[in-house]
C-alpha cells in the first residue's frame, strides 16, 4: 500500500467520482465541485502565463524599458483597451460596448476560417480522395478497390446531405447508399470512443489496485 499522501488523495477523489455509479451522493458532489474549481483555477493560470504575460504584459514592459520601440506600447494598448470592454457587461447602461470585442473576435475567427477551411477541409480531402486515381497503374487490386470504394462513399454521403434535390429515384438510391457509409462511420466512431473510455477505466483501476493498494503490478 502506498505511503504517498498524494496517491491517497488521488485514490479518494477517484472513488468519490466512481461513487456516482451507485447514485448521486455528497462524495460525488464534493469531487465534482472541487474539479470545477481546480479546472477554472488552472484555466486562469494558463491564461495569465500563456496569454496575458507574453502577449500583453511583456510587450508593454519592453516598450517602457526601451527593449522594444515605443509604438509597440500603443499598438499593444489598443487590444488591451478593447479587452476591457468585456467588463461593460457588468454595467447595464454600457453593456452594449461588449459588442466591440465580440465583433472583432468573431470577424477575426470568420476571416481566418474561410481560407483555411477551403484549403485543409475541402481541397485536401478532395485531393486525398482523387489522388489514388492519378497513380492507378502502380496500385494493387486491393488498393484500387479501396480507392473506388472511397470515391463512391464520399459522393454518396455528400449526396445524402444535398437537400436542394428531392431524394427520389437515382438520387434517392445514391443517398441511401450514403446512409450505409454513414452508419459504418458512426459505428466505428462509437467503437473507438468506447475503447478510449474503457482504456481510461482500465488506467484508473490499475492506479487503484497498483499505485494505491499495491495488489497488482
Amino acid at each position: 500500500m502506498s505511503t504517498d499522501i498524494g496517491v491517497w488523495i488521488a485514490a479518494f477523489l477517484t472513488l468519490c467520482i466512481f461513487s456516482f455509479l451507485y447514485k448521486d451522493n455528497p462524495f460525488y458532489k464534493f469531487a465534482e465541485h472541487l474539479f470545477v474549481g481546480v479546472s477554472v483555477g488552472y484555466g486562469i493560470v494558463l491564461t495569465i502565463h500563456q496569454g496575458i504575460i507574453p502577449f500583453a504584459w511583456q510587450p508593454l514592459k519592453n516598450s517602457i524599458t526601451g527593449e522594444a520601440p515605443l509604438w509597440r506600447f500603443f499598438v499593444t494598448l489598443i487590444p488591451v483597451g478593447v479587452g476591457f470592454l468585456f467588463f461593460s457587461r457588468l454595467m447595464p447602461r454600457y453593456s452594449w460596448l461588449i459588442r466591440y470585442p465580440i465583433a472583432i473576435l468573431i470577424g477575426m475567427g470568420a476571416g481566418f476560417a474561410i481560407p483555411r477551411a477551403m484549403e485543409t477541409s475541402i481541397f485536401e480531402q478532395m485531393n486525398g480522395t482523387l489522388r489514388p486515381f492519378g497513380v492507378i497503374n502502380s496500385l494493387s487490386a486491393g488498393e484500387i478497390i479501396g480507392a473506388v470504394l472511397m470515391l463512391i462513399g464520399v459522393v454518396c454521403t455528400l449526396t445524402y446531405f444535398f437537400f436542394s434535390v428531392e431524394h427520389k429515384g437515382i438520387v434517392g438510391g445514391i443517398s441511401k447508399l450514403g446512409i450505409i457509409f454513414l452508419m459504418i462511420g458512426f459505428g466505428s466512431a462509437f467503437g473507438n470512443t468506447v475503447m478510449g473510455r474503457v482504456s481510461l477505466l482500465i488506467q484508473r483501476v490499475d492506479f487503484l489496485l497498483g499505485d494505491w493498494l499495491g495488489i497488482v503490478g
Binding site: 480531402q125 486525398g128 480522395t129 479501396g146 470504394l149 472511397m150 470515391l151 463512391i152 462513399g153 464520399v154 454518396c156 454521403t157 455528400l158 445524402y160 446531405f161 450514403g178 457509409f181 454513414l182 459504418i184 462511420g185 458512426f186 466505428s188 466512431a189
Partner: peptide, 9 residues
C-alpha cells in the same frame, strides 16, 4: 475505407 469516406464527406 468506409469510415474515412463518410468522415471526409
Amino acid at each position: 475505407n468506409p469510415n474515412l469516406s463518410s468522415r471526409r464527406a
